[in-house]
Design a protein around this nucleic acid. Structure first.
Lengths: 122, 122
DNA sequence: AGTATATTTGCATTATGGTGCAAGTACGCA
DNA sequence: TGCGTACTTGCACCATAATGCAAATATACT
């Protein structure tokens, strides 16, 4: 069993290692905005969140909408103000699911004898 | 308490939302390589992992070393071949820690009454 | 020593993405 | 209707990073 063939098993991990989600969390500014929102614990306006870092409000707006597209936060518009909330449940669920999936793939004895006989020689 | 002030509490989350880690997982090619390695379950050579996707081997090499710098995988050189293994334990621990930290910040009742009185009006 | 294999590095190219500014849209209020 | 506020979008600019190719390095084998 080669790594390529091994890819055919352990299905769940492929969907969980979603580059889009991680990309959303990979920018320092965005990370800071999210951290701010996570700790706030309630719905914050774009302007409120914007106070967390010294960037243009348009940048904040774009980052928050990107986080929403990634499923990390949710927005609700009331009048002319937009409130953002962290989707705590979903984010936790995703992180735990990734941990679980990785753990399931983790062989009991990792090295040097390959438990699954993959990777050719090894 | 504004979002800015709220940032002062709930400390752990800031260190856990490390953009560097997520950046490592944010590239599709890298994600695929990692998924391949995770499912393989044992130490794979650069060439082996490279079979997972249609990119130059030099690209694979660079991606794997980046993943190592991010603490996602570990390498060991034996002779002229380099073996990469996923650091299952560390990755799981990190993901769970993030989930835990987020959950701790999650207010019991999220909306519309803000449990922490932050975000001004709301 | 000479050749083959495994991986890395330098370099140029291209793609992606973050940023600020200015203008635009949407809505509330007088 | 006109003005102010909250946010978004278009655009240009700049930085970072992904990629392939070719060359270099390191090691094994004969």
């Amino acid at each position: 069993m080669t790594p390529v063939q091994a890819s055919a098993c352990c299905r769940p991990i492929d969907d969980l290692l979603d580059p889009e989600l991680f990309k959303a969390l990979s920018d320092p500014t965005r990370s800071r905005l999210l951290g701010c929102l996570v700790k706030c614990g309630c719905a914050c306006t774009v302007s409120d969140v914007g106070e967390c870092c010294a960037v243009d409000l348009s940048v904040v707006s774009r980052h928050l909408s990107l986080l929403e597209r990634a499923g990390v936060v949710q927005s609700s518009k009331t009048g002319r103000t937009v409130h953002y909330v962290v989707d705590y449940a979903r984010l936790c669920r995703t992180m735990r699911a990734i941990a679980d999936a990785i753990e399931q793939c983790c062989p009991a004895e990792q090295l040097p004898g390959c438990a699954r006989g993959c990777c050719g020689a090894r």
